[in-house]
Design a protein around this nucleic acid. Sequence first.
DNA 1: GCTATGGATAGCCTAGCATCCCAATGCTA
Length: 574
Amino acid sequence: MRNQDIAKIFYEIAFFLAMEEIPFKPSAYEKAALSLETLADDAEDVYKKGGIKALEEIPGVGESIAEKIAEYLKTGKIKEYENLKKEMPVDIKELSAVEGLGPRMIRDLYEGLKIKNLQDLEKAAKIGQVRNLPNFGEKTEQNILQGIEFLKRTKGRFLLGEIIPAVDEILENLKSLKEVKKISPAGSVRRMKETIGDADILITSSNPKKVIDYFVSMPGIVKIWGQGPTKASIRLEKGFDVDLRVLPENQFGSALQYFTGSKEHNIALRKIAIEKGFKLNEYGLFKGKKIIACKTEEEVYKALGLSYIEPELRENTGEIETALKNKLPKIVGYQDIKGDLHIHSNWNGGLNSIEEIAEAAQEMGYEYIGISDHTKFLIIEHGLDEKRLLQQRKEIEKLNSRFKILNSKFRILQGCEANILADGSIDIKDEALAKLDYVIAGVHSQLKMGRKEMTERIIKAMRNLNVDIISHPTGRIIQRREEYEIDFDEILKVAKETKTILEINSSLSRLDLKDINIRKAVAAGVKMAINADSHHFDYLRFLNLGISQARRGWAEKKDIINTQPLDKLLKFFK
DNA sequence: GCTATGGATAGCCTAGCATCCCAATGCTA
């Protein structure tokens, strides 16, 4: 599947064209890129079957882009892209990752100071060259330096949501080998940390050599760091490393425990082992030379006097003490979600009709969904006004009555994602909000506010009797933007008081609330909803990332409102 | 450069905000 690679090139072409201020073309390329990213079929298959004409059937792909796809499939390159890169040899991915830097500024930095990458940029900003460029100033220079600092702190790590599909693909590939008996991801991937350094995979096999040889010859590998009789390490085209270990069958449990970590969790466990006169390592739990436990993780934890600890909890943040007392919560499961409440449809720039989304949701086994399109303040997203909300209601009612006729219990709720304006008011009239099944409200503008102001702004929204859920409550973008300045404890207090639900947004770069804040919310008795915030039904499945975040935050089924069937769910809304 | 409409051409691409420079530009949702 090379769709992602082609999409990436189109995104870069769009950026280059935007740098030259060419109108319309950038968005045409972006649209085609998005379309390829979410295309179920392999573009190569499409081309082989039906040629250029078939490629043109892909939404957003016309004659010219179809030819470029074909060119890439034939030659591995797109000439126009190569030329653009030659003309403006800048690292777009790196530079545009700095918050506040867009095409024009990156062009000006290159033309004025020959800045090609982050290193050049930091050097120039530090000696005060950037401020002297036209349209730049001291303030912008400061913002750039802060942006670079922020990037550095998170360097070399990848988003969980970027890694998981690649790891799943490798796991599936390895499973096809008959020499592979047990297989599992380990490390931070298994703990579902929000960012991942590299991926670890454990396998049991009686023929390690065969497994290793197969592993290092998989497609998509750009470098083999090392390859031995029981382990190998590779780098994928996507830029991250994967380590593989092959073990004998009976060591799987202790090895999985050891390699899942975290380091801090394991250190604490080993201390307990020593206190009990044991020794714990990747080969097992030992008393002297006698093996006490090694086959399964459960066995290892039990032998140490602990209840089983789910991988998502293993960060040495109290889980070991709690497990010693057998008091760990039964955290929410990956199959517990009954419906998704934050979904955008083509009514506001999403890609699918409500009907298509409902179909996809039913296939996923959901009992209900909530359509929550943007409202009018977000003009770029074609936000709905009061009148359009009413029209949408009619469409939803029509679909619901069809479900009733078909004797299906599946239902569509109508919500919206309204905007919390700077003064805390909502951009849709209360009468219109009251007609919806529920209301999500979120901050989408004026993100840089003082702590007191921003806290008051969100609190005012929570006190609105029509607002049920606050979307992405802290506004962070992983590796890119810090949370807003807010008094989160105060937010929790008012959420509890007003029975406002806080969202766990599963969008791969948000995961907002994050684990620590979820744990605080659980402790404060504030209810949460895990939502995908998807603009295309393919992304509904990313809800798993939100569930993992909830699990890392020790949330139980009862803390999450959309684990409940429809009749009980409705009771949570004001 | 794509799509829709009508067969070659129009339309797409907004609003608020910060910053820079004092009216305009670029970024972000």
